[in-house]
Amino acid sequence: MINYDYAHPRTSLSITLSVWYALFLREAVTRLSAGRIAWVWLLAEPIISMGVMLFVFTVIRMRVVGGMTTETWLLIGLVSYLMFSRTAAQVQGALNANKALFVYRQVKPVDTLLMRAALEGVMSVLIAIVIGIGGTFFGVELIPEEPLTVVIVFLGLWLMGLGYGLVTSVAAGLIPKVGIVLGIVSKVLHLSSGVILPLAHIPQPYRNWLLFNPVLHGIESARLAVSPTYVAMSGLDISYLYKCAAVAIFFGLALHRRFANKLLAL
């Protein structure tokens, strides 16, 4: 038996910080050790899927979108959407994947979500950098004219993904079959975000309806930041993305606080 000094009990903050640290490392190890070369697939999977999209788009000979080459338009859209979608999906699934750990009362359900979002943010940035360098190497114009705006947009999309995941994780956990609805919602979000479909020329009033989607604001703003001559959708507002993210995060955290006990018993 090893003996220790327990004269100073840990504060709530130090417990939470050590739980976050442990969860972050645990998530990272789980993702990286899922197979012999799991880390290769982690990068290869999004890159290959983007390559396929690129191939399909160039085959149907779409050359220019809004004054931007299709390659640039598509890659910026896909990478930006990644910031939102990967984070959202990972955070939404965090409760299910970490059930076993709720045995330890130090681990709160919301901790696992926050750490997944953090890890996913780091990985999405890595993927974005690899694609940025790789694309530039193959002659696609991906170096942004306004790098700071891109950083702000990516951060906003990541926060939006976190907020979305916080809310949907509670909904999926507490309401049966809501997962099916969420699957449809994410499809609608994907199509209405202008990732693979150019939306700038959709007739009114439908175009204004699309502007309710905060992710669309982020993606079109990212394209505009890469090339200021890009003819983006009118009515873009990065602050709208941040406002939606803030509302979603606070609502999600409130839900987690309200239903903390029910989520433990999932």
């Binding site: 840990r10 417990i15 050590s18 739980v19 490392l25 050790s33 750990l101 330890y104 681990v107």
Partner: peptide, 13 residues
């Protein structure tokens, strides 16, 4: 890895 996780959440880094 499991052992390390449990040590960490109990604050024994």
């Amino acid at each position: 890895q499991n052992a390390k996780f449990v040590c960490r959440i109990h604050g024994h880094e």
